[in-house]
Structures are given as C-alpha cells and as structure tokens.
Amino acid sequence: MTDMALPSRDRARLRRMAASNAGLLVVLSLLVLMLLIGAVVSDRFRTFGNVANVFEQSTGLALVSLGQTLAVLTGGIDLAVGSLISLIICLTAGLLDGDGTYMIPVLAGMLALGAAIGLVNGLGVVYLRIHPLIVTLGMGAVLQGVTLLYALGPVGSVPDGFDALAYGTFGPLPAAAVVTVLLYVATALLLRSSRFGRYIYAVGDDGNAAKLIGLPRTQVILFVYAFSGFFAAVTAIYLVARFGSGQPYAGANYTLASITPVVVGGTMLSGGRGGVMGTLFGAYLVSLLNNLLNFLDVSTYVQLMFQGLIIILAVSLYVEKRKSIA
C-alpha cells in the first residue's frame, strides 16, 4: 500500500469508474453499434421520424422497468408487474367507460392502488420472509385472476382526448417519452444523493448488515415494491391511453420484458450494483432492436430470438466475479 504512487491510484480510480459504470458502457456501445448497423442497412432508418418513433415506443417498457430496477437493486424482483398492469388497464378503461367526468379521481385511485399492491408485496417479503420471487409470483397470479373476474374480454373505453397522455408531443418530441426521461434522471439523482437512495444500495449489497447497523431496511424494501407497483400503474395508464380500451392480458408480457432492460443496463440481480440510467438505455436498446429487425423484414418470431441473444450477450460482457477464496 505504501509504495502506491499517485499515477497508479489514478489508474485505480479510472478502473473503478469503468467497473462501476460497466453496464452503462456496454449498453451504450451496443446502442451505438446498432444505430450504425441501422444507418448502413436502411435509409429510412436514419430519418428523424424513425428515431423519434423508437424513442416513443420505448416508453411503456421504460416506465415499468424503472420500478423493476429499484426492486432488483435491493436484491429482489417484482414478477407481479405484468398482472398489475393488466388489472389497472382494465379497471381504468372500465371505470371511465368513455366518460371523462371522474378522470382525475380514477387516475389518482389507480396510482394509489398500484402503490398499495406493491406495498403488500413488500410486506410479504419483509414479514412473511418469503423470497420476493415467490411473493410477487403469487401476487401476480392473484391479480391476473381478479382481472379475469372483472373482465374476460375487451372492456371499457377512454374519454376523448385521453390519448393525449400517450400521443401528445413536446415540439417535435413525444411528450410521454420526454417525461419518462425526466423521471429517470430524477430517480438517478435521488439514488445517488439522497440518504434513502444510498440505503437502497446498502440493503441490496448486504441486507443483514444494513439491519444490524441500524439502517431502515424494512422501510427500504417496502418502498421499492410500492415504487415498482406505482410505476406499473403509471405504465398501465400510459398503455390504456394508447390502446383506448382494456384487455385482461394486455400487460402479461411486461413481467419478464421489464427485466431485460434492467439486466442489459448492468444492474445485477444479486443487488447493490447498477442504476436506473442503464435501464433507460436498455429499454432504448430493446426498442431499437425491434425497430431495426422490422426494417430488415425479420419476422416477429425471430425478433424474440434476438432479444434472448441480446440478454446473453450483454450479461456475458459484465460477468460477475467468481467468489474467490483468497
């Protein structure tokens, strides 16, 4: 230690910065790579309209993955988000049923419901001491059943103008996507520089230690699942604005899909490492991949396969170090 000269310390700092941002680096290089490929293979791909399109289409996935990221950061996972989205899509469309009179209370109620269901997940993790995988899986099944009790097929509709939530623009940019970016940036700042944000990392790194040294572990876990539930509700409202009506399986694919951007963006499933910005770029990557494959006329079936390959590729690039003895 004593002979450590300054240059080597700087190098260590650099290496650490690279290591702690490995996810971001990997996902950004993949994004750039894919943009280059796209630009080469298709003229239409390069248009501003298309890029804005990719940006817009990432919104749903990005929103639900924001909540998922926090759950994963604590070493947990939220497999209830898909069913929760389905439920809230159906309830929103069904309750509004084309009438805008009670729009504000309904939306507020839906957001509260999402957070409350997430909170219940958190309570299960903390007080029943069951693995989050199991708690949220069980909750997902219950919610899917409840959704099907409420509606076996398409249900309800949204009032006129509601679709502005999904299709509104900010100048040339899709408003929902821009708001999503702002939400990510705000979350990233809070994760980095609020006490509670640091506790989320600490709990994910070693939950037991966090408890022993007096950090509010319980509150952290309850919060991240409530946060995830809340953002599942936000996603649902965005989606129902897009679709115009409810459908009892509308959110089903989001459960596993929401995990892809998280892990591609460098957040470790073991908790304590990663961050939300990687997730955002991960969502763009998924959206871009689908867009690019569309241009290449690849069938949706093969697109699926590529998504799997991207996960393998990205995750293999930042392999976790094997637990060593020395």
């Binding site: 600490a202 790194d205 070693d206 037991n208 230690a209 040294i213 304590g272 490492r273």
Partner: peptide, 13 residues
C-alpha cells in the same frame, strides 16, 4: 455502536 466479529460492510460501496 457495535463492531461485530463478522463485518457489516457493504462490499460494493
């Protein structure tokens, strides 16, 4: 404040 025999450190902080 307790310093336990088993560390209560956060390895990635």
């Amino acid at each position: 404040h307790v310093i336990y025999q088993e560390f209560n450190l956060f390895p990635h902080l």
